[in-house]
Write a protein that binds this DNA or RNA. Sequence first.
RNA 1: GCCCCCAUCGUCUAGCGGCCCAGGACGCGGCCCUCUCAAGGCCGAAACAGGGGUUCGAGUCCCCUUGGGGGCACCA
Length: 499
Amino acid sequence: MSEKIAPVRVRFAPSPTGHLHLGSARTALYNFLFARQQGGQFILRIEDTDRKRFVPGAEEEFYQWLTWLGIDWDEGPDKGGPFGPYRQSERKQIYLDHASELIERGHAYYCFCSPERLEQVRQAQQKRKETPLYDGRCRDLPLEEAKARVAAGERHVVRFRTPHEGTTTATDLLRGDITVENRLLDDIILVKSDGLAVYHLAASVDDHLMQVSHVIRGSEWLPTFPIHAMIHRAFGWQEPIYVHLSVFLKPSGKGKMSKRESADLIKEGHSIFIKDLESLGYVPEAIINWIALMGWSYDDHTEFFTKEDLIEKFSLERLNPSPAAINFTKFDYFNGLHIRNLDFEDLANRIRPFFSKAGYIVDDDEKLVKIACILRERLQGLDDAPLMAGFFFQEEINYEPGKLLIEGLSAAETAAQARKISALLGGLKDMRHDSAEPPMRVLVEESGLKAGQVFGMMRIAITGQRVSPPLFESMEIIGKDVVVRRMEKAVELLESMSD
RNA sequence: GCCCCCAUCGUCUAGCGGCCCAGGACGCGGCCCUCUCAAGGCCGAAACAGGGGUUCGAGUCCCCUUGGGGGCACCA
């Protein structure tokens, strides 16, 4: 009675030819979220059948940054699993066997045409404004003859025998049925002359063998996915459910990001490469939230999502098929949002390396947590921390003495104020912000000046900055001795100015 | 050139025939709060690409145009 529901098995299948970027990270994320939500498995498969484009180390980099993003997998080259190996270069024979099966079934054939001849054919067709397709010279070679030539060691490839008439319809979950005319489909190469399978064969075979239930991947596969469906059908296999994601466009929305533009981005503190994002001050929580929302939505008002929220709320049905322009401004906003969602100890640990990198010695954990407390709501990126709070770690602060001057007051008058403040602060039993602020307010009141004027001068004297975290909280962290010493220094500076 | 896909504020999007003189978010402008900067709160400007249909009724369905994207390799 009850239909057996196949378990959800999805995969992220990058080729080790470059860095993990926003687009591929999102594909990985969606697959991961869906698997976790459905209680299924998430497979990591390395598609390294192109030896020419192989980049050493790229695979390990994928592991590193996927893990940093909080995306983990159940099966993969590094983890193993019941359907391995998970690196396509190690599955060569599997593809060869399947290609042979297709040949025996009449769905594929050996082709002995040289790349040079193919190029000539293609050029001739283009000159005639025809769709460039294989001209079928080897398509109807008697199988026995072809086999004999292969046995004799003749260089060859294996091609798929695409029907010339009719149409093929395959279904994309987001777009519905997509029908293509078979006469416009090429007899694609399944196995290259180096004996390695091409993507279309390898991915189809692996998706079936690894029992992948949903193929969630980029839309660059949309034009060829009917061929993938045909390959499954040729074997007599059931096709997985296909979900083709939209592409990311550059911020202007006009076209996708070029290599040059990607490189230029980093100058503005942005990047499409995940590897750059950590040192740029982004937290993985924000990255995940942001990219999840480029092409998926939950309802008409919820936008803040943790990983757990996403696992719970994600759904394939709410995926959006239209291309999305990358909006880094919103990314910055999400970064701030997620930084504010961190607890103080966590934040302290995350800003520590940024202080270190700026040359500050961070040896007091308690102090760092206090700094995290007052920094949290004003950080847009973790990298802002040393810029905003470096003065906490400096023995001596330097600033332009003139900045101490209270507007409308002379140097002597400002010095008098500073002296009073210094004396008041020096007489305090401690520098707790709630015990230092009230008497300071009284002093400001008596001076007839505005709080902003007096505190502005103190801010320069104590932090060396015009803009800083809240003054009294900062003073508490700095400590009475240093605060008083810095005030006294300010008095000296002001007095020397009034000479 | 051919094929496929997409089309709501500048951007990300909600909207699956009447709830929409179109809602949210980022950004932008203003105000409030305020020791600076933020954060937060409130208010505001800002969109259904165009044209035909279908229907009592269209942002929502169909067609065309336009625009954008992707693909057309012994790359993935």
